[in-house]
Design a protein around this nucleic acid. Structure first.
Lengths: 210, 210
DNA sequence: TAGATTGTTAATCGATTAACAATC
DNA sequence: TAGATTGTTAATCGATTAACAATC
């Protein structure tokens, strides 16, 4: 039964379903049952059926799920076919690594431009992406419809840049600054996804304690 | 009341407590109540008191918590004072970004060495970290006590390298490969923390859907 | 002392798992 | 048809929130 409000727990499992189904597809697997997929992913068959039923009826009794169809359905649910526009702010080591290595298209985005304050970077191209002066960020956002900004600059600049992005109507911020900037009530609809590297490593530290 | 088995949900909030308390400390705040901290972090006062009570009694009725003490306590719980040994495998763009910019010490680790297959990198130093031939990884692990390996190499090499690391007795793997390698039953005690960039961006894609 | 705030117990809420009729 | 497996409802489990006596 389709649900209106999807829980966060379910949403965060969707990309994993995607990755696993993509792998099965590459291996040439045509169909899979919830119990086989569950074994693959370390989930119960029940949970998988429960998760998928939030979005529709993708399976068939006695058969299971068609791998390719289910893969496409979940990509559709996540909106990965959308090719929305993205920019990156802060073309330092990490920003550069993302520009060069990360497959934005596979996650539903086109990376249109990067911004940085360093004069030696401004005007260059990285992996086909033009690097503009950070001072041009505001004007750029007024003339281009940008859905998401990747924030890969030092934490000290995070709040100010985030404020500008939100004021100019950004929909989402992918935050790599390791700083949780404030989101004012007037921007409550802005979505922030933070990649807190240190949080992850600190959890790892805890989990390997003696 | 101290608990034996701490839930994953609680563990994953600990680094956030740490970050918030660190910020308060920097601002010179000396004490804080669970309700004030809750407002700060977007949690209920109840949850904070419940979380902390898993590990001991750190507060005082009528007063709240001493910011500095609580900060130190949580760092201790996470094991961030330990300075355990870490290595990094794959000194490409992302690996390089971590070596140069990431503060391993703040998360409880010393980054001792990096490994790569590229001849032009072998023998060099990055930010004081020596880059060795990836072929030396096995021998290195036999002569050095390494707690954690950072995996920043292409997904195609992930399984093979992870297998080697686990065979040589690694305690934890911080996985940036965007690939969930298999962990054999014989290595069930190995802890894997994965930073799946694409999962995060895909969730963001979902959350900004119309 | 009076007010504030803890740690803990009990209540509620939400997520996961189990069971099973429906049906391919 | 018989076996397999779904989608869904009900049961269980776990996490969050509320309430409150204890006490600084």
């Amino acid at each position: 039964m389709r649900k209106d409000k999807i829980s966060n727990a379910v949403i965060r499992r969707l990309p994993r379903y995607c990755r696993n189904l993509a792998a099965l597809r590459r291996e040439g697997v045509e169909r899979i049952s919830s119990s086989a997929l569950g074994k693959n992913m370390g989930l119960t068959a029940s949970q998988i059926r429960q998760d998928l039923s939030c979005f529709g009826e993708f399976g068939q009794q006695g058969y299971g799920y068609n791998v390719d169809t289910l893969y496409q359905e979940i990509r559709e649910i996540l909106g990965l076919h959308r090719q929305r526009s993205a920019i990156l702010v802060g073309a330092g080591n990490l920003g550069r690594a993302l520009i060069r290595n990360f497959d934005f298209v596979d996650s539903g985005f086109r990376l249109e431009a990067a911004f940085d304050v360093r004069p030696e970077l401004i005007g260059t191209e990285m992996h086909g992406v033009p690097v503009h002066d950070a001072a041009e960020l505001g004007p750029y956002l007024e003339t281009h419809a940008v859905a998401v900004a990747v924030l890969t600059l030092p934490p000290q600049s995070a709040q100010k840049t985030a404020d500008l992005l939100m004021d100019k109507g950004i929909r989402g911020i992918w935050n790599f600054t390791n700083f949780d900037f404030e989101v004012g009530e007037e921007h409550a609809e802005v979505v922030v996804e933070s990649m807190h590297f240190s949080d992850s490593l600190q959890v790892l530290s805890y989990l390997i304690r003696d």
